[in-house]
Amino acid sequence: MSKEKMEMVPTRDGFGKGLVELGGQDKDVVVLSADLTDSTRANWFKKEFPDRFFGMGVAEQDMFSTAAGFALMGKVPFACTFGVFASGRAWDQIRVSIAYMHLNVKIVGTHGGISVGPDGATHQALEEIALMRIIPSMTVIVPADAVEAKKATIAAAKIKGPVYIRLGRAPVPVITRQEDVFEVGRANVLREGEDVAIFACGQMVCEALTACDILEKEGVKARLINLHTPKPIDKETVLKAAKETGAIVTAEEHTVMGGFGSAIAEVVAGDSPVPVKMVGVKDRFGLSGEPDELFAYFGIKAKDIAAAAREAIKMKKE
């Protein structure tokens, strides 16, 4: 598969399509938006189902608690804004109004990661996986592409309880197929290999695919796992990879502190210790720039994943 020939679609578009489909299937689905209705693609739902769309203005705290009220009445609210504002600004509302009551609210955070680009650090969410997965009862999903994002949206509505869906702004290659099985909490192995296991989520799955190609040319067989659900984490697949490959690399468009790589390391450290090398943003804020430039600048491109894989393999041999 060459990256250039792939269809490029933002994951937020997949979400928007999934939401419209859900709206037609279930009249209890309602959507709330904090003034970012076009950007989050909530406008597609608004157009089809205006009576079930609620604009909340620039008021994220109010929006998430209001969503909790809808859930208390048996509705399935999707509350949408940028990831930074959802996970940061309204963290306590998500903790107390939603998760502590185990309410059926779907929290949709678009514009995750540095692929937001020119808007810069204030708008580039690099902490949501960490901030959300530490809340009891929360499910966290990071779809790899638009096809998976649509499936994740529909799957999230079927879960009884709070779900955070992390989406991106920029168009990304569509690497999964309609017929691929998507199950929340069940990772998908995209490539088999025994030398090293690469776990990735979101847009990093595509980078990791390229990394596997680089490694293959060097005679290294890497296993690639699309771990789209950082929580609840698929322990079985993580531990199997640790045991069978003996070296792990994690790749996330997110801080390496407390996030996706940490979730995997927690499982590995406790039950099957092997080296874990994390590729991600290293304890710093984002920057303005184009997504591709930023991926290179922050060292989270395919070549960086390949380099981490070589190091992990070396560590297991030592």
């Binding site: 309602v30 609620f54 705290q61 109010d62 929006m63 998430f64 608690s65 209001t66 969503a67 909790a68 009220g69 809808f70 859930a71 208390l72 009445m73 048996g74 509705k75 609210p77 509302q93 107390v96 109004s97």
Partner: peptide, 14 residues
Amino acid sequence: GQGLSIANGIALAA
């Protein structure tokens, strides 16, 4: 500070 927002959500759903 969270109760009134929840009340609004209940009222809108009702």
